[in-house]
Amino acid sequence: MERRGVIEQQEDQGRKRTPWRLPGTLRIPGRFAATPGQVAAIAVLIGAALLSFLPLYWMVITALQQPTLTVQLPPEWFPKAPTWQNFAELFGRPLLGRWTLNSLIVAGGITLAQLFFSTMAGYAFAKKRFLGRGFLFWLYIGSMMVPAQVTLIPLYILMSRLHLISTYWGLMLPSIAGPFGVFLMKQFMQSLPSELIDAGRIDGCSEWGIYARIILPLAKPAMAVLGIFTFVGEWNEFLWPLVITNTSEMRTLQVGLALLQDEMPMAWGVIMAGATYAAIPMVIVFLSFQRYFLKGLTVGALKG
């Protein structure tokens, strides 16, 4: 079964804890002696990955294709004469820059506010004992089960009474109030040693100082996770921005893009250019913070 080389086996024994592997499998890359099973596994994986990647590829290809060739059959898998024409038309639209700015302000503002308020509340729940602690935390947890659409109508009425429709505050406030960040921060801060807080107090640190100078620096990994996920989630948010904005100037990029499709229904090249434009920032965020995405999800998730 095992077709590993002697040296590799020795290497494995040399390591303290060999990661578990299915018998008969080899690490790749290494010495290439893949079993037929492995080759089949890789083939299936590549097939499945290509399947979910193909639509994104098709978006970019359509965006770069000449408008007249978009609807020809058979389609060109690799455009022979790619063009920026669709992007030029997209950027020529009057409000694209404003929508991008709105998305940046809204997603960025929500992220900063979430980080600030969640770390404070998370710290209180994790490290302080106070009257009502159990009940209040139960409220936060319980409300994570409530679908956001339930609050849609009351929030809309509330915002209209506060005259916040089509404003940045109206766009941001409901998402800042979401309970998930508090939960995540509480879970993480619980694992920080309380001795540090005691030490800080003995050294004469104020309560605010303990939070700002001891807890916050230690919570950076969790803050990175919360920040990245919040930013991506809010950049991609659709329903609330759709409902709460009624002027073209205040639309976010996602809403603008959706309405672009109404305005020019058959211009697939321009629409795909818009989709590509809106996707690129998130792809960049993903590639730069890849390890947070591939690990961060398990922070605060159920353990066993």
């Binding site: 990647f53 639509p55 994104l56 996707a279």
Partner: peptide
């Protein structure tokens, strides 16, 4: 799972990528 870290990471990323593109973009495509 049986593969080494780099291959795991590659495939995880490949499957994750559509996840950061918004529902609006996926719908339009």
């Amino acid at each position: 799972f049986p593969f080494a870290r780099p291959i795991q990471t590659f495939f995880k990323s490949a499957f994750y990528l559509p996840h950061v593109t918004s529902a609006v973009i996926i719908s339009l495509i």
